[in-house]
């Protein structure tokens, strides 16, 4: 008998595709959370493959903090057009303007926490019953316990102590009106797997992921980009450096790393040698020991 065997990337792809199709089958009105970061790009790429030759049967949803890197928005629009997908945008600025949330003040202000409110409002407005997210279990310790199909109650909250068990490939997406699910098809990918998959599939990424010159300043051990959205302290001095980003989120909380990795092979070599997790550059995770769990309970991605 021939030896039937799948390479680990093929296994991860087959699993993610199964989860994406299961989401379309079990939920009336899903959406795919698209941030312009590499994980959500990979997830959207997988969604396009899962439903080939049909179009993705649900919209992409971007929660826009208004504090984006310009490159992210340009990439988003081109990518959505290439996929022929529908794009829905939830605006944090609009949530601020209508008084739903109050903008943080001062040099450490971030719209990161405000996103949860905009996200939940957008879910409610569009009656989304499931939101696909690019979260991975290797990212953060609270995420290591996350399910593929993760239940959210009427208030959009995650209850980590009361998660539905998930066995084999049986996913239970039953829910009551008002409740919804977060679904994570990339759960079993690691950062390295994502990069290897990007390379194998020839997926184009925003230029932010590759080495470029940028004005940055050091804060809390991270290099933050100089931008109109962050107030620098008097002691903080901008410097021009060759950097790249390992994750991409809001400008105010995404740190760069000094790097000369200008193509995929160099980035992969750098990831392999890295001694810091990619979220080590994220100021939002450093607010407390269980910052991620606490934000997830509130409805964060």
């Amino acid at each position: 008998m021939p030896y039937y065997h799948l390479d680990h990337l093929d296994q991860l792809e087959a699993e993610a595709i199964f989860v994406l199709r299961e989401t379309a089958a079990q939920f009336q009105n899903p959406a795919l959370l698209f941030s312009g970061g590499k994980d959500s790009i990979v997830m959207a790429h997988l969604a396009a493959k899962a439903f080939w030759p049909a179009k993705i049967p649900f919209p992409l949803l971007h929660i826009d903090t208004g504090h984006n890197f310009g490159e992210t928005l340009a990439y988003r629009d081109a990518f959505v057009e290439k996929l022929g997908a529908r794009l829905v945008v939830g605006s944090v600025q609009a949530s601020i303007d209508t008084g739903r949330v109050k903008e943080e003040k001062g040099p450490y202000a971030s719209r990161n926490a405000l996103q949860s409110v905009t996200l939940l409002d957008t879910i409610e407005e569009h009656k989304f019953t499931a939101c696909l997210g690019g979260g991975r279990r290797d990212e953060e310790k609270a995420r290591a316990k996350e399910r593929f199909f993760s239940h959210r109650d009427d208030f959009g909250q995650w209850d980590p102590k009361n998660q539905r068990p998930e066995l084999w490939n049986l996913f239970n997406g039953r829910h009551h009106p008002g409740e919804h699910f977060r679904v994570f098809p990339l759960s079993n990918f690691t950062e390295m797997d994502v990069w290897m998959y990007i390379k194998r599939e020839g997926i184009e990424l925003p230029p932010l992921y590759f080495a470029h010159e940028r004005d940055v300043f050091a804060r809390n051990g991270s290099l933050l980009a100089v931008s109109e959205f962050i107030t620098m302290l008097e002691t903080e001095k901008p410097e021009r450096k060759t950097v790249r980003f390992r994750t991409i989120g809001d400008v105010t909380c995404t740190g760069a790393v000094e790097s000369s990795a200008s193509d995929l092979d160099e980035v992969i070599a750098e990831v392999a040698a890295a001694r810091q997790t990619e979220r080590g550059t994220r100021a939002d995770d450093k607010r407390s020991e269980t910052a991620m769990e606490d934000r997830k309970k509130e409805g964060y991605f």
Binding site: E140, K141, A142, A144, K145, P160, K161, Q163, E289, T290, E293
Partner: peptide, 13 residues
């Protein structure tokens, strides 16, 4: 990783 696990010093999930 979970708050309850860290508090109680056991693995739950």
């Amino acid at each position: 990783g979970l708050r309850a696990e860290r508090e109680q010093g056991i693995t739950i999930d």
